[in-house]
Amino acid sequence: MPERVLAYVGLGSNLQTPEQQLRQALDELARIPRTRLVAQSGLYRNPPMGPVAQPDFVNAAAALETQLPALELLDELQAIEQAHGRVRIERWGPRTLDLDLLLYGDHSIEEPRLRVPHPGLHERPFVLYPLAEIAPELTLPGHGTLSGCLARCSPGSLERIESHG
């Protein structure tokens, strides 16, 4: 039987009712084969990282216990994005749904399609703060403890807009 791995996913949306996009995506994460949704954060609003001529993003984080290999899990995440009408046109551009595989257990992965830990994870408040809500004791491979990363990362304009529940 394949090992069970605790994986963390970052969710983001800034098009077509972002809060609803994330709530629906969380339901869909819970239906991935051989995977169980074990925790989800509240929702957070923040300004876009890339081009500023776009709406604010809504972000969240989820913890998944999975038996899927990392690339199969990535395929499942991308299938959910596509079902939400995700189109990859512009880096850091607006999107209906963005699902990033942030961490896959304590593995470090360097593949053409996947880098884990997710690049920039340790310095992005819209990822760190939702993650801290569901896994405050987490260690980020190569970057130390989540609490240490938070201490070096101001929340800036990040605003919690909805609690999980």
Rank of each mutant, 00 (worst) to 15 (best):
E72Q: 06
L138H: 04
P125R: 03
A30N: 10
I32A: 05
R36G: 10
A62E: 11
P33Y: 08
N59P: 00
A53V: 12
V38P: 08
L146W: 08
G42W: 09
H143E: 15
Q54G: 10
R152E: 15
S147A: 14
T96I: 09
D27V: 03
P47K: 03
V87Q: 05
Y44N: 06
A79P: 00
A70G: 02
I134Y: 09
I161C: 10
A61Q: 05
L73R: 00
D98P: 05
L77P: 04
Q78T: 01
Y129Q: 12
E28P: 02
L121F: 04
F57E: 12
M1Q: 12
A83D: 09
L11Y: 02
E110W: 01
C153L: 12
T35V: 11
A25L: 08
I32H: 01
G156Y: 13
G42H: 06
P130N: 06
S154H: 14
A25W: 02
P117K: 02
L103A: 03
G10H: 05
L102R: 00
G50A: 08
R160V: 13
G156Q: 15
L11E: 08
P130E: 11
P112E: 15
P2M: 10
T35Q: 10
P136I: 15
L158A: 11
L99E: 05
C149E: 13
L29C: 04
S157G: 07
Q67R: 10
E110G: 00
D106H: 02
P117G: 09
D106S: 07
C153S: 11
G105M: 11
T66P: 07
P55G: 13
P55R: 10
A135T: 12
L68F: 05
L29E: 06
L15S: 06
T96P: 07
H164K: 08
H84N: 07
I32G: 03
G144V: 08
T66K: 02
S163E: 15
W92T: 07
H143K: 06
G50R: 01
E81R: 00
S108I: 15
L71Q: 07
L146N: 06
L43M: 12
M1G: 13
E123N: 01
A60L: 09
P51I: 09
L114T: 07
Y129C: 12
L43D: 13
T96E: 12
L73S: 04
Q82G: 01
Q78M: 11
P2V: 05
P130T: 04
P69S: 00
H118K: 09
L138Q: 15
W92N: 12
L26P: 01
L77W: 03
E159F: 07
I89W: 01
L103I: 07
E76P: 00
V38I: 15
F126T: 04
P55C: 13
G148L: 07
T17F: 11
L140H: 03
S41Y: 09
N46A: 14
L158G: 09
C149K: 00
G50T: 06
S13K: 02
H143Q: 14
E133S: 06
I89T: 03
E137W: 10
I161V: 15
